[in-house]
Each structure stands twice: as structure tokens, then as C-alpha cells.
Design a protein around this nucleic acid. Structure first.
Lengths: 197, 197
DNA sequence: GTCTATATGAGGATAGAC
DNA sequence: GTCTATCCTCATATAGAC
């Protein structure tokens, strides 16, 4: 039920997704929903977003550490997202963005959940940049630019039904970050990096 | 009524905004709504998004041309957006993003309207870059990065209730774009640029 | 052209049998 | 613990008086 909810939230958003649709899609009777989630729709949505966010975190961490070059890593990230868009016929962008933007001003609990997930992704990117030799002050600005442009490109790609925005920013950030990359003594080498849990 | 609808759509989104709320907020009786907009909610939403998008276009064009330096222009853009967020207590981000992300997969007509508005903003940024001396191939990648990161930063800033993401990407893009800027013979000078309608 | 009253359905939530 | 039947509210949309 949680995974069904997560998928519906990602594609349609919070308000467009009804409890009827969730129970129908997941073959779950409506009665037991309120046994497992006494808080109703909002509590179920929180659980679904948290699960989807955690799953996405694992993918992000894996893809960022799949490439030795930090620019390649960012591009691999955007390529992964582009594939996800194509595979879902542009129905699935960021698993939390739709709910985040819908509930930022109206549902404080959901807003906080989304905020925590974004913070975690932010930290994953920062760690990868630190390993590439950037200093802490630089990692902050670069990771913000990366996360913001990725989220924005997901929005634009979904709206345009084209992966062009994702591909363009992936290629461009790769170029920019490799120009800015410290060329001397990265703080950790790639083999250490890859052994992270 | 259109402006009231536009504001509600921006803050709450399409599905969270009811016709009752619109008529109440704008002191309009419900009956005449369907006289002016026979298509109902969807037609009204289209009109509202188009109006909000056009208004925002004017602001974007004005602010991009308010600074002689292209990096300053981008930063002035993000500062304007940051002020809008603060003035609305983080309720108003991009006037079309919420509807765009909600309807990309479900309401083709609204999706198209949002797409057209984004295309227009894209062109405004491209024109500004061309005037700064960038060649057409470069303008495409830079304008995509700028629009994507601005949209993403708006999403993150709204979700975090902090203008930090907007300020960071504004400052960072300013730096990056000035490093990449052609130093010789811009195609048009600033006085010409400012005379654009 | 403008408004009131209402139709019709779907929303989230719950009570209570099993 | 699980499911069915149902409540109440609110949604969009319309009919018809003025």
C-alpha cells in the first residue's frame, strides 16, 4: 500500500490522489487503512514519501560513487534520472517534488518530511564533492547548484516531455565542475570512496 | 477573479483550490463563473496561469535588463524572487510551477500552457545572453542551467522556508557566467539593450 | 448577463459486525 | 486485526428565476 501510494503521489500529487484510488490500486480494503494509519491520508502520505525518499537516496549515493571523476558522477546522476523519465513516459520525475511543492504552505508535517529528504540528498552530494577535493565552503555552493538545477530540470523535463533539460544541465555542470575542481591531492581516493556503506 | 485564481493556484495548487474558494475570495457569484468560463475550472485555471505567466514575464524581462553586467542581471533576478518569497512568507514561489508539476501527466491543456510560459522565459534569458556576447550554442546551455536552477531553488527555498538556496545559486551563477563571458565585442551595447520594449 | 438553489458524485473518515 | 456499510462534507457543474 505504501509503494502504491508513493507512486500515485509522485505522478499525481497529494490532493489529486484519493484514498479510494489507493485502496483500489493496492488491493487493500479501506477499513484496515485506518488501523495501520490512524492519522489517515496524511500519515499514509508521510510513510509513502519517506519510503520513496529513502529508496531514491540509495540510488543517488550509488550513482554518485559509481564514477571516479566527480563531473562524470554528476552526469551519471542526471542520466539515471533521464532514464527514469523515459521509462515512465514522463510520468515520474522527482518522487518528492510534487508533494513538496503542494504542501509547503499548507501541510507542515509533510513539508518537514520533504525537507529532511532534501537535506539528506544535499549531504550526499556534499560528501561526494568533499571526496573530490573541494573545500567545505565550495561544497556548499556547488551542492546547492547541483540539487537545485537537477530538481528544476526534472520539473522542466516532465513539463516539456523531453529529457533535453536534464541532459543539458548534466553535461554543463560536468564541464563547469571539472573546471573548478582542485587538481591537487584529493582528500580521499576513489577506492576509499567506493567502500562507503 | 482571474487574479484571485492565479494566487490560489500559486500557493495551493490546482487540485487543492476549489471553485467555492475562488468565488468567495474574489466576491464573485458562482453562477457567472460558468458564463465567462464555459469550460469550468480548467478553462479558468488556464486563463489565470496565462495571466500570471505574462505578468511574471514582464518582471523577468525588466530585471534582466536592469543591470549592465549579465552576471549582475542573473543575480538581480534571483534577488527579486527571494524578495517575493519573503514578502509572501514563503507562500509564493514560481507562479506556474505548482500547476505545472501537478498537471504534467494529467491535464494536457494546462501542461501546454505552462510549457509555453517556460519557453517564453527561456527565450528572454537567451536574448539577454546573446546581448552579452554569448554565441547561440552557449546561450542554450546557459539559459537551461539558469532556468532550471532558478526553478529548483524556488522549490527548495519554499520547502525550507529560507531564501538561502536562491541566494546561493544567484551568487554562484553570477560568478560562473562572468568567468565564461566573452570579454570582446558584445553583439549589442547596453543602451540598445535597455530600449527593448 | 447575473445570481440562487440544487443536482450529482467523490472526498475523507468512522462505526460496528466478524 | 480485518472488512463492509455508511456518514458527512465538499467538490464541480447546472437549471432556471430574474
Amino acid at each position: 500500500m505504501i509503494t502504491a501510494t508513493a507512486e500515485l503521489l509522485q505522478v499525481q500529487g497529494y490532493h489529486a490522489t484519493g484514498l479510494n484510488q489507493i485502496t483500489q490500486e493496492s488491493n487493500t480494503p479501506k477499513g484496515s487503512l485506518y488501523f495501520h494509519f490512524p492519522g489517515g491520508k496524511e500519515e499514509l502520505a508521510i510513510a509513502a514519501i519517506e519510503a520513496a525518499g529513502a529508496e531514491e537516496s540509495q540510488k543517488i549515493e550509488a550513482v554518485l560513487n559509481s564514477q571516479e571523476d566527480v563531473g562524470d558522477a554528476v552526469q551519471a546522476f542526471t542520466q539515471l534520472l533521464a532514464e527514469g523519465m523515459l521509462n515512465s513516459d514522463f510520468r515520474k520525475g522527482c518522487p518528492v517534488a510534487t508533494v513538496a511543492i503542494e504542501t509547503s504552505s499548507t501541510h507542515e508535517s509533510l513539508r518537514r518530511v520533504c525537507e529532511q529528504i532534501y537535506m539528506h540528498w544535499f549531504e550526499l552530494i556534499e560528501q561526494r564533492l568533499l571526496m573530490a577535493g573541494f573545500n567545505p565552503a565550495e561544497t556548499r555552493t556547488w551542492s546547492t547548484l547541483i540539487l537545485a538545477s537537477v530538481e528544476g530540470a526534472l520539473l522542466l523535463s516532465r513539463n516539456q516531455k523531453s529529457v533535453q533539460p536534464l541532459e543539458i544541465i548534466g553535461e554543463h555542470i560536468k564541464t563547469l565542475i571539472n573546471q573548478a575542481k582542485p587538481q591537487h591531492q584529493p582528500q580521499q581516493n576513489f577506492s576509499q570512496l567506493n567502500s562507503v556503506s
